[in-house]
Structures are given as structure tokens and as C-alpha cells.
């Protein structure tokens, strides 16, 4: 563990990514201390104020609410949605992908047919259908978004498993008498880990955006509680008059995604013995 942290600290992209995410987590936890206003506090003197006007560093939205403060509070929802729904998608998708890849026969074919069927639906439509079953609410939204991600995770993991499975070291493990359980956990999982990490970090932005869509439809977070995605979708009607309403939540999503991608990249390199010095 100590050795791992040491390596983490030596890897530039991991450190940068980690710092960005840590900052986000910090903002989310200490939102009441960091924010200059309440997230639902309306300043009627400054509606759609430009950044800097009236002490609002990122300006205000169409209700005169401080964008900086809403972003800080929004980090709570968005980070949680990103992490939890990607976690659900990655976890179930990895299990299914490994089963489908390792046991190619009937079960594998069944999983993949089901997968393909799900993948042929638009992402958001599927999430909405899920929400219709689960009922509205932010936690249900996370579950729905996570489950909707499962098929694409399963597909990526399956193809990674198929590649690793062809390697002679898997045959060598079988020749030694290793059980399927051992082969999967000790050989396949560590070797598909890079694909899993990269694909998870790529999916973070998708999750944040999906949450925005669900919130926009009234199925996710309920106003006035902010999330980055809902702020972005509210802003789209005012792009001409108040572009800053979209720019700042967009930047927040972008920077956080970059953070996750950098951390993902860094982790992949740290975990690969071939790249160690």
C-alpha cells in the first residue's frame, strides 16, 4: 500500500487527476463553508448578472442565483451520480462481460444477445424507461444510469477477456491445474483492469450528462437543488443572452472528466509492471 502511494505520487497524470478529484470531493463536503450564498438564494438585483457583477464571481442565473455557489453544491450530486452510477455499471458489466467472455458457450451467447438488444435502444430512452419502473428521485436516477451503462461495459470487458483468454499463460495456468475461479481472479481480472479503468473514466461524463437529462425531465434531482447537468440544461435557453450560465457548469464537468481520465491513465500506468522504472 505504501509502495503504491509512492508510485502514485511519482506519476504526474495520476497526481493531477487525483488533485482535481480531491478538490471536487472537498468542495462537495464543505459546500456550505465554501459557497458564498445559499444555492437557492435569489438576488433580484442581479438576475443573469455577468461574472463578477454584484460580488457573484461566476455571475448569476435567470433566477438571480449565484452560479459559483450552485456549482459548489452541485458537485455533491454530480460526483455522486458519476461515481455511483459508473460503479454500478462497471461492477455488473464486468461480471457479465467476464462470464460472457470466459464461458463463451450458451450462457455467453445469451448474455451478449440480451446486451445487443439493450444497446440498440437510445441510452436516455432506456434510462427514462428504467425511471418509470423505479420512480423518480436522485438515487433511482443513479441506479437507472448505472444499469443503462451495463451493456456497454459488458461488451468492452468481454472483448478484453477474449483477448487475454487467448494468451498462453492462461493455458499454462490450466495445465498447472488452476480452477476457473483462480484463473479469472488471478490472471484475467488483473490483465483487463486497464480497460476497465479507462472505460470507467470515459463513462463519468456520460453519467453526469444523463443525470442532467433525467433532471431536466423532472425524474432526477428536484429543483431547486442544483446539479451540474441540470444547471447546464437550464442554461440552454439563455445561450445568447447569458452564455456564462452554460460555460461554468460545462467547465466543471469538463475539468472533472479530465481529472478522472488523468487518474485513470495514471492508475493504468502504475498498475502495469512493464511501464515501471
Amino acid at each position: 500500500m505504501k509502495a503504491f502511494l509512492k508510485k502514485l505520487l511519482k506519476n504526474k497524470s495520476a497526481v493531477t487527476g487525483f488533485s482535481i478529484i480531491l478538490l471536487n470531493v472537498f468542495l462537495a463536503i464543505f459546500a456550505p463553508l465554501v459557497a458564498t450564498c445559499q444555492f437557492d438564494e435569489m438576488d433580484f438585483m442581479y438576475v443573469m448578472a455577468k461574472p463578477g457583477e454584484g460580488g457573484h464571481i461566476f455571475g448569476t442565473d435567470d433566477y438571480g442565483r449565484d452560479i459559483f455557489s450552485r456549482l459548489v453544491y452541485g458537485a455533491r450530486v454530480s460526483l455522486m451520480v458519476g461515481i455511483i452510477s459508473v460503479g454500478i455499471g462497471a461492477f455488473i458489466g464486468t461480471i457479465l462481460g467476464i462470464i460472457a467472455g470466459y464461458y463463451e458457450g450458451f450462457i455467453g451467447a445469451l448474455i451478449m444477445r440480451f446486451n445487443d438488444a439493450l444497446l440498440s435502444f437510445p441510452y436516455v430512452l432506456l434510462a427514462i424507461a428504467m425511471m418509470a419502473v423505479l420512480g423518480p428521485g436522485i438515487f433511482n436516477a443513479m441506479i437507472a444510469i448505472g444499469i443503462v451503462m451495463v451493456p456497454s461495459f459488458a461488451r468492452v470487458i468481454r472483448s478484453a477477456v477474449l483477448n487475454v483468454k487467448e494468451e498462453t499463460f492462461i493455458t499454462a495456468a490450466k495445465v498447472l491445474g488452476a480452477s476457473d475461479f483462480r484463473i479469472i481472479f488471478s490472471h484475467i481480472l488483473p490483465n483487463i483492469f486497464p480497460s476497465l479503468i479507462i472505460y470507467s473514466s470515459l463513462n463519468f461524463s456520460g453519467a453526469v450528462i444523463s443525470e442532467a437529462t433525467l433532471s431536466f425531465l423532472g425524474l432526477g434531482i428536484q429543483p431547486p437543488t442544483p446539479s451540474w447537468g441540470s444547471m447546464l440544461s437550464e442554461a440552454k435557453d439563455f445561450l445568447q443572452v447569458a452564455p456564462h450560465m452554460a460555460i461554468f457548469p460545462g467547465l466543471a464537468i469538463l475539468v472533472t472528466c479530465i481529472g478522472f481520465n488523468l487518474l485513470g491513465d495514471g492508475l493504468r500506468d502504475i498498475l502495469d509492471p512493464r511501464l515501471r522504472k
Partner: peptide
């Protein structure tokens, strides 16, 4: 079995010690 291609017959993510010990563990 000793395999032809030592590049693909050793798990790149395991130390030599773990590779040799695997049979004993199994």
C-alpha cells in the same frame, strides 16, 4: 508443459516468484 513462446506464456502482471509458485499454490 513447457510452451514455445515465453513472452505470452508468462503472465506480465505477476512476479517471477508468483509465476513459479503458482503450481504449488494450486
Amino acid at each position: 508443459i513447457v510452451f514455445q513462446d515465453p513472452d505470452s506464456s508468462l503472465d506480465p502482471r505477476k512476479r517471477i516468484k508468483e509465476i513459479i509458485a503458482e503450481g504449488l499454490r494450486v
